[in-house]
Design a protein around this nucleic acid. Structure first.
Lengths: 125, 125
DNA sequence: TTGATATATTCCGTATTGGGAATATAATGC
DNA sequence: GCATTATATTCCCAATACGGAATATATCAA
């Protein structure tokens, strides 16, 4: 046995950054034609078609013919397993998250009070 | 050029289910010795060592010698990129999420009120 | 029909995977 | 020293992966 095959499960399908890019694109622009993805990613068309093939096989995207184009749409629910998996560990980041959120809010307040400059590192002399 | 190499980034590192299992284990039991993981996964020891090697190289786990054992611990922050990525799509699942959160809060309250037993499903009549 | 455009498929080559088996290293105990 | 235990490393191999190049299919347009 070798590897789990990118077309076998979602985790392998999203391992390739190009495919994540495609997913990102499709999450913003609902329904994209291959050509658009090609120019957006700057990859050769066959490469894009292959990546789309992988995503299709796993069910992350689906196609509909439309004239001579293929319109790809995202099936976000297929990403749930990943979400559910990492969410298991969310607890561990929650405190950090809270702190980050607090900081962000503090920053927003500070900026609202005195806009014009983003505050820098830390160094409180 | 072939693939991005499992040892190159976190997304590839977690593509293998065995490695996700290891992560799951380490998230429950903080600090595990290789032998424990071996019996838990039912994989041959060299295989486990290799998977641990991948996780180590990506920074998901770190080792400390302890006598003749190696204790592996999880560095959960390294999984953040994955979390952050899927979280982008959370919006699409929000309704479901709200319900989950509500349940979690209800559970927390119930537990605060009467600790000692985790409540089971829900059943919304 | 011919041709242009849009997309998919096939073949090729190199790199990588992940388990198996054997072996190497390291620490412990006698 | 030697044996045992714990873990890592090496070598092998079949199965992929993924980009490149070429080609195949499909649709539209004239």
């Amino acid at each position: 046995m070798a590897r789990s095959s990118a077309t076998s499960d979602v985790f392998n399908a999203i391992a390739a950054p190009q495919r994540r890019q495609i997913i990102d694109l499709l999450s913003k622009e609902r329904g994209l034609v291959v050509g658009t993805i090609v120019v957006a990613l700057g990859l050769p068309q066959p490469a894009v078609s292959k990546h789309l093939g992988v995503l299709r096989k796993v069910g992350i995207v689906s196609v509909t013919k439309q004239g001579q184009h293929r319109v790809y749409v995202l099936n976000l629910d297929r990403l749930r397993p990943i979400y559910d998996w990492v969410k298991t560990f969310e607890r561990h980041w929650e405190h950090q998250l809270d702190r980050i959120k607090e900081r962000a809010e503090a920053r927003a307040l500070a900026q609202a009070a005195a806009p014009g400059k983003t505050n820098r590192k830390k160094g409180t002399p």
